[in-house]
Design a protein around this nucleic acid. Structure first.
Lengths: 165, 165
DNA sequence: TTTATTTTGTTATATTATAACATAACAAAT
DNA sequence: ATTTGTTATGTTATAATATAACAAAATAAA
């Protein structure tokens, strides 16, 4: 369930440790599948497996964590296999990359193209996504004044979440 | 020369290729020196050399570029030497790290502690710094609603600068 | 069912960053 | 000035993240 506040920021509440995560994964998978079907791109078994691993929790996961999991499961996997699947998922907007962590997280709003803005807890590692139109506007405004054509943004807010305080 | 706009965003104009860059370096060095003196921390020769290399241009520079330059100059240097100097400069707020590029850039406003917000040109690699209080407020607002304690942020805007269009 | 395209596998290597321990330089106190 | 503690740098090795280049397999299109 997502919220939209007075400043026109949409966000998911910070994931509570008690929430039913299997439902998150189920929902995310269903959405991803539907999106790929509509777009006529292939949600192959490999990509699905990588996506599921990224969605395993709301903590951003590293490419090599995914690799290790595959290998522990007995699947002989090399880095490019994982990175290619991640690249596909990034292109389709099904996941985001967290630059400050070199890690990947499932997208909460994959239906519509958007730029993720993230709030990341240093202690538990959990992260949640914002879509703030105010931040967007402010960035757009500053960019215009600089005569700068914006193509992408990295917005990551790091600190301590409500659960960990 | 920096500007402040109606949305309370302070920024440097995107560096023009014609600007007198030696003056930038001179100013930055003077500021850095003064700041270190006031704080009673040591702006050693190594740190100064690394700082000068970071300030060589307004393009964020990689740690290994700095390393290579030292080595080309005949100074036998290993990565930790460079990273430690960078860490010092980061701690003192004299430079910033650009997470999306794994690179480092001189700070335009080192006098006062602040969070850098960056606008980075994909084509020429040049970058400039913003200090937008509106973005700050928006982040703070969203964080409050999430009951989240903000410690740091990564704000990087990527696109095409006025010069490269 | 051949052909073209896309996806995945495989090997090697590039890039960025840090751990761990040794030495040197400096500062403070006798 | 000289010992002592502290900070900074040197050195070696390695960890962590990511990509290049080419081969094989799977799928889609003709």
């Amino acid at each position: 369930m997502s919220f939209t506040d007075a400043e026109n920021t949409t966000f998911e509440a910070f994931p509570k440790p008690t929430h039913d995560h299997s439902q998150c994964v189920k929902d995310a998978l269903a959405k991803a599948l539907a999106i790929c079907q509509v777009r006529g791109v292939r949600f192959t078994e490999l990509r699905k497996q990588v996506f599921k691993l990224v969605c395993t929790s709301h903590k951003p996961i590293g490419a090599y964590d995914i690799l290790d999991t595959f290998q522990k499961r007995g699947r002989k996997t090399a880095p490019p296999t994982v990175y290619r699947a991640l690249d596909f998922l990034l292109e389709q907007g099904l996941i985001h990359r967290i630059a400050s962590l070199n890690a990947y997280i499932g997208c909460d709003f994959p239906q519509e193209p958007h730029r993720g803005q993230f709030v990341i807890c240093k202690l538990c590692g959990e992260a949640t996504e914002l879509v703030s139109h105010t931040i967007e506007k402010c960035i757009t405004g500053a960019a215009e004044k600089l005569d700068f054509q914006v193509q992408s943004r990295v917005i990551e807010i790091i600190g301590i979440c409500s659960v960990c305080q």
